[in-house]
């Protein structure tokens, strides 16, 4: 009789034991890591003012839209966003954007030093990984 009453207890202990083992597996969600962080507000402000005019879904210039479409950017997965940031960084460092032709007609479109610093800092990406 004593041995029989021990059985359900043993089973209960067993169940608890297995739950404890499975818990850490349940808690990991690798998909969450693939989600990209939002663009910081001050970066977004510069983009809206200085980049979005050409790089948007309704843009007239096919090339500008194809290379970078801000309307699509935030919907992209993390890997795509980081790739775009990497290319943005390169284009800024090389002085390719905004295009010289564009600035001839619209000198006010030039990035100020502060705006340039904000975009460079953000597009470099690495510094943000600690957050």
């Amino acid at each position: 009789m004593k041995k029989l009453s021990l059985l359900p207890i043993a089973a209960l202990v067993g169940v608890l034991f297995f739950q404890a083992i499975q818990k850490p597996e349940v808690e990991t969600h690798p998909e969450i890591d693939m989600e990209a962080p939002k663009i910081p507000a001050k970066v977004k402000a510069v983009i809206d003012q200085k980049c979005y005019g050409c790089h948007n879904a309704e843009a007239k210039g096919e090339k500008a839209k194809k290379k970078l479409d801000w309307d699509q950017f935030e919907a992209e997965k993390k890997a795509k966003q980081l790739a775009a940031m990497s290319k943005i960084n390169e284009a800024l460092v090389e002085g390719e954007m905004p295009p010289k032709k564009f600035l001839e007609n619209k000198p006010e479109g030039k990035l100020t030093e502060e705006e340039m610093a904000i975009l460079l800092d953000w597009s470099a990406g690495k510094k943000k990984s600690g957050e």
């Binding site: 890997a79 795509k80 980081l82 790739a83 775009a84 940031m85 990497s86 290319k87 960084n89 390169e90 470099a124 990406g125 690495k126």
Partner: peptide, 10 residues
Amino acid sequence: DMMDKLAILD
């Protein structure tokens, strides 16, 4: 660099 790898693959 990781970011450059992503740009290349893209």
